[in-house]
Simulated assay, not measured.
Amino acid sequence: MHDRNTHIRRVKYTAFGLRIASELILPELIPAEPGVEEDVVIRQADLSAWREQLEQTNFVMQDERFMFQIPGTAIYAIREGKEIEVSMLPGADPDTVRLYILGTCMGVLLLQKRTLPIHGSAVVIGGRVYAFVGESGAGKSTLAAAFRHAGYQMVSDDVIAINVTASAAIVYPAYPQQKLGLESLLQLEALQEKHVLHKEHVLSLTDGNPATPQYRDLRKIAGEFNKYAVPAVNEFYNDPLPLGGVFELVNNSSNGELMRGGEPVMVTEQPLNKLECLHTLLQHTYRRGIIPRMSLGEWYFDTAARMARKVEGWRLLRDSSFFTASEVVQRVLELIHKEEHYGSHEFS
């Protein structure tokens, strides 16, 4: 790794279990203790020589360096799990530049370090981390926010970094920020105030009108419609913990067909066997399309298979015609407490 311009000031942070020294200010991350030796360097570089080639393809692999371009934003190069180079394009939005550093770049870097990145949100329950995965719009971030509001700490809201050891799957916390839509923010606020928020009111606020005063200071996520960066410093757990289980969230509009005790059932669960759990982990790996191009297919499958043997898995089907965050929180806690009672978290 070459290190030019060593006089340039670098700010040190921690994220994903890594100590990071960065020439770019990354306000989303937690500052590191002074004097620590960095694991990763983020620096600005001139990668313009690769621009024409990157315009013809999605990425370039050169030895241990993975490069990609986001038009109008930057060219990025990630090398050997140790370095991220950023070549900002003219007129680039700094927020968008950072979005890809903390997202795709970190995902590639974790893969280079043989740490599996799962796409989802994760919270701490009973000394273990539980991950929530699912397709876009399944409610992963909203559920993690509901757990925060219920007094639980989060460890990630996008990339869940997991290192599989001989005895456990260990999760390394990301950084204390969530991405939440305005509708979710309003619904969660209503939940806290213990009154029902009419759906028409929510829609009127998300239909291009200004956000309510308490959300005006939130930074809007670049490229996302009505999604905001929500700090979660006070509810963030910043130490590694074992992964206890994975919940796959699936939207399922039942139209009130499923009833229990005369009431509609808004959340139902299906336990996942080890093969189904493996499939879920493979399906929801962050930037999984990159993995075969990095020649990591064998390592990837073996790591996910070992992880699937060490954790519990469930599929949660929620009625998408209702706001079900509090019901899902309650059901998740019931399932975890039931598993703990029967001692099924013992690793074989």
Rank of each mutant, 00 (worst) to 15 (best):
T165C: 00
A32I: 11
K113I: 03
Q283R: 15
L249Q: 01
T212C: 00
E200S: 12
D319P: 06
T57W: 05
Y175V: 03
F323I: 09
K227S: 05
R128P: 03
L89C: 03
G223V: 14
G81K: 11
S204C: 03
G103W: 05
E28T: 03
A211N: 11
S167P: 03
D239G: 00
A190Q: 03
A229G: 08
D93K: 14
T285E: 03
N255T: 07
I84D: 01
E235V: 13
D39H: 15
G256P: 13
V123Q: 02
L218V: 12
N5T: 12
I290Q: 11
M154C: 06
F301G: 04
Q178Y: 04
Q53L: 12
G313N: 04
G261D: 10
R79I: 05
L99T: 07
D93M: 02
P117I: 06
F323Y: 13
E38G: 03
Q270H: 10
L282A: 09
I290E: 04
I84P: 01
R9Q: 11
V328I: 15
L275W: 13
L335S: 04
R315C: 11
M1F: 04
A222N: 13
P34H: 06
A190S: 14
V230T: 11
D3G: 00
T268Q: 14
R10V: 09
L243T: 12
V328N: 01
T73Q: 07
G120E: 05
D63C: 00
L203P: 04
R288I: 08
Y300S: 06
G261C: 05
P213G: 05
T57G: 02
Q153C: 06
M106W: 04
K82F: 01
F147T: 04
Y342R: 15
E312R: 15
I170Q: 06
I160S: 00
A92V: 08
L317D: 08
G244C: 04
A131D: 01
T115L: 02
E83H: 14
S348D: 08
G139A: 06
N234W: 06
E235C: 04
L109F: 05
